[in-house]
Design a protein around this nucleic acid. Structure first.
Lengths: 333, 333
DNA sequence: CTGAAAGCGCTTACAG
DNA sequence: CTGAAAGCGCTTACAG
């Protein structure tokens, strides 16, 4: 079918050693004499040898492939996480495949992954897929879940992240703090709790509904009527919503941060390159990837792990937040 | 490592037949007596047997996995194409894995895919990856390329699609037709050619620059100063740009299609659910997937194929285009 | 219609 | 330090 590829037996012949020696040399077995290893390596290199992963998998029983399951692809956050995770897994000797749940999961019946990471998955144990999946006895965990009784997960403490944003704003004198996002999101709950903890009043009117896109954030602000008692600061649900909101604020003639402060959730690089360098709160994405890679590898190795692993979002101060000048933005309006 | 899974040998023992018979029964070999097959199937079912794909791959030499390589994930078009392609491949006995090029390609050194589809890839033969990849002798083609000398590809005749849009608008009396998109895109070239073919004048001013997002389309229209000689109709680069442009047009107080007509490229379902059901032109996405699946399977089977396979974009009339009422939108403005 | 046997390309005790 | 051998779980001629 294909052009036949070179195998360890071919290399063995060329090197004048047994093919088990070749296998060991290729795998860096320390018992092999350096000179032998060198010769084997050179021949392999010269003939562009590629280990046949299927054979390796079959004999070793493991694929060294991790599945990363995402719900949707539209959030730039995923591209970032997927890339970081890919890198961290690679460092640990694993490859990653992306599985988009809308594409279905049958890939798992073909490809034996050694482990699986589910991003922010709304876990439904009665889901036929989850039933099938658990039959495979593949180590897995939820990344970014809020809870997952009896199974490992990495929790992003989003409520605490929002709390940090609220705290930061309050310290700068803001007392009327709004949120732009959909009320289903745990971040809205976190927002309300944070206000309560800080002794600030919760006004439903301060929550501008925005589902998840740039457009949503933009329209939420566009549709909002600013008035005397409007928030002097807003927190945005995610990077897209926040950037859309920023644009709408600027178009409404409000200066950010002079007239109104804005903090975005999710610390993506693009946030600092927005029209105004955005102050953000969000999980450290590199750490997230490291923790996720470590956890799945530990699970694969059957090490005992304690969970949840909790990731604390961090505040990154940039240029979209200023001390509250009470009523200033209203006057300008 | 894992809970040991049941194998064909186990089934053979339970069924009282040889394991080669089990293999054949499981694979639907017609020589096997129906009663035998039934017994085997029942036992397999009962014990939740899963074929070990690595063993299958190793012995058959093929993985039945196709790689689908994407550059970026943010366009909703990709989600659609990926899903359709996945389905079509599945019908033909193949699984698909998504490979995001920003994640790197090392997955290919681990996982032997039987074939590979590159979406709209800016092919660079000197790219070290492409060199490595071609060494693997894996069948592949470009999907959505404009050309690919000496290798198979599926061409989407975007220029012809744009031509259809221009023609449709002209037939309804429009002579000042604008385009919203970035001038790097082949669609802009197609737009200019279409105007020329139709004897319409090309004004650079009619091309509103928009790179690719909703925001880009929205801002392009926002920043445009409508005047006496402005276009009476626009064509949008893709679904996102078009939807952003639609919003900006509406906000500018223009009625679509009464005051101004709009055609969007890419016939995604969401286009008809926009604020105004959008007339679109774009490749039939189901056919695209079918053609892509057929081509890669043919290539894998070493069948001779003729290429390029050309996909013609289709016009879908909805409610965003109306007969031109010369100057009407200007008067209203 | 069924089965014994070879083979896919590796890994990994085990023996030397 | 190296090699012979068994084995991973299948598929597939081949013989019957």
């Amino acid at each position: 079918m294909y052009l036949r590829m070179i195998t360890i037996k071919d290399i063995a012949k060329l090197a004048g050693v047994s093919y088990s020696t070749v296998s060991k040399a290729l795998n860096g077995n320390p018992l092999i004499k350096p000179a032998t290893r060198k010769k084997v390596m050179e021949i392999a290199e010269k003939h562009n040898y590629r280990k046949n992963i299927m054979a390796t998998q079959l004999s070793s029983g493991r694929s060294h492939i991790i599945g990363f399951v995402l719900d949707e692809l539209s959030n730039p956050l995923f591209a970032n996480i997927s890339k970081n995770l890919h890198l961290e897994l690679k460092k640990r000797g694993y490859q990653m495949i992306l599985v988009v749940s809308t594409d279905g999961y049958d890939i798992f019946s073909q490809l034996r992954v050694d482990g699986c990471i589910f991003w922010d998955y709304r876990l439904d144990k009665s889901d036929p897929f989850m039933k099938d999946f658990s039959n495979l006895h593949i180590p897995w965990f939820l990344l970014g879940a809020d809870e997952n009784p009896n199974s490992p997960y990495i929790k992003i403490d989003r409520k605490e992240g929002i709390y940090k944003a609220v705290e930061h704003l309050q310290e700068l004198g803001h007392s009327r703090i709004g949120f732009i996002g959909n009320s289903q999101d745990v971040k809205v709950a976190g927002y309300k709790e944070a206000l309560a903890r800080k002794g600030l009043e919760v006004h439903e009117e301060y929550v501008l509904p925005a589902y998840s896109t740039w457009e949503d954030g933009y329209m939420a602000v566009r549709n909002y009527r600013f008035h005397q008692g409007s928030p002097t600061a807003f927190i945005g649900l995610n990077s897209m919503v926040t950037k859309g909101a920023l644009r709408a604020l600027l178009e409404a003639g409000l200066k950010v941060p002079e007239d109104i402060s804005l903090i975005g959730y999710d610390d993506l690089p693009e946030m600092q390159y927005a029209e105004v360098a955005l102050t953000t709160v969000g999980p450290p994405l590199d750490e997230l990837a490291v923790q996720a890679a470590e956890l799945i590898v530990s699970l694969i190795k059957k090490e005992t792990v304690s969970y949840p692993v909790v990731i604390q979002p961090l505040l990154h101060e940039r240029s979209s937040v200023a001390r509250c000048k009470e009523r200033t933005h209203i006057e300008n309006n």
